[in-house]
Structures are given as C-alpha cells and as structure tokens.
Simulated scan of single mutants.
Amino acid sequence: MTQLREHSSKLRIKMKTVLFILLMSYFFIPSVVPLQCYSCTNAQSNEICNQNSPVNCTGSQDRCMVSKVSATILGKEVTTLTKGCIENSKCTGTVSVVIVSAGTNCCDKDLCNVNGSVTFHENKLMLTACASLIWLILKLIN
C-alpha cells in the first residue's frame, strides 16, 4: 500500500511538471503567424485596393509592399497601385523618367501597406541615360 501511495505521489509530481512546462511553453514560445498585407493588382486608387480582404504571406515573403506607377499624358495623371506580399530582397526603390514614375515601398508589420504611399525620388543616373539616348536618336535622325 505504501508503495502504491509513493508511486501515485511521484506520478502526480510528474504530471504537475509536465503541465507546468506546457503552460510555460504556451506563454513564452512565440506562435508562427503569417504576415498579413493588403493585396490588389493595378487598382485605380488606394480606397479601391483596400476593399479587398488582406492576404497571408507565404514562404519567404516577409514584407508587405506597395508598387505605384504614375504617368502624365496630355496633362492628365494616371496612377495604378499594386499591393501584396514580397521578399525583402525584391523591394526596390523608385525611378522617374520624363512622364513616368514608378516605385515600390516595403514594410514588415501586419497591414502596414494600408496607405498606399510611395515617394518618388529623382533617379539622376536613369534620367542621364534617357537624355543620352534621346540625344543619340536625334543625332541619328538628323
């Protein structure tokens, strides 16, 4: 009878230890929750884009992105937005060439691509290359 009580007591201690470890792991081991981002393709405005349900990023996609293309044609500006998930290595800056500006901004928090803003910065190397190409074409034509 004494051995049975000792065995029962040891079993309770083991069960309490296991329960304690499970409880601590619940609080201290982070759960893997995928990043959520707004997602759309070639939306005409940020409001239209954000009407879509957010998506869960998968695999190595560890950033939310906003890609914006703006063109001014005959005095009218046309802008499209694309949002979604992307790998950090594919996040690029901005390019402005004469009438077209394109850029991508990335962030790493849930739904951080909500505002759809991309700041365009002048890319002097690209502008110089385009100006040189135009000059060369004009030289060949004349």
Rank of each mutant, 00 (worst) to 15 (best):
T2M: 11
L4T: 00
R5V: 06
R5D: 01
R5W: 07
E6C: 13
E6N: 15
H7Q: 03
S8C: 05
K14G: 15
M15F: 05
F20C: 10
I21W: 01
I21S: 04
L22A: 12
M24F: 14
S25D: 03
F27Y: 01
P30H: 11
S31G: 04
V32L: 14
L35I: 04
Q36G: 02
Y38K: 08
T41R: 04
A43V: 07
S45A: 12
S45I: 09
E47D: 14
I48D: 11
N50M: 12
S53M: 14
N56T: 04
C57R: 01
C57W: 06
T58S: 15
G59T: 02
G59H: 03
G59N: 02
D62E: 06
D62L: 11
M65R: 03
S67L: 13
V69A: 15
A71I: 14
A71V: 11
A71P: 00
L74W: 04
V78I: 13
T80V: 10
T80L: 15
L81H: 14
G84Q: 05
I86Q: 02
N88M: 09
G93Y: 11
S96P: 01
V98M: 13
S101K: 05
C106L: 06
C106N: 08
C107T: 03
N113Q: 06
V114W: 02
V118C: 03
T119D: 09
F120M: 10
E122Y: 00
M126Y: 14
M126N: 02
A129E: 10
C130P: 00
C130Y: 06
A131G: 07
I134H: 01
I134E: 04
I134G: 03
L136N: 02
I137T: 11
I137Q: 09
L140Q: 05
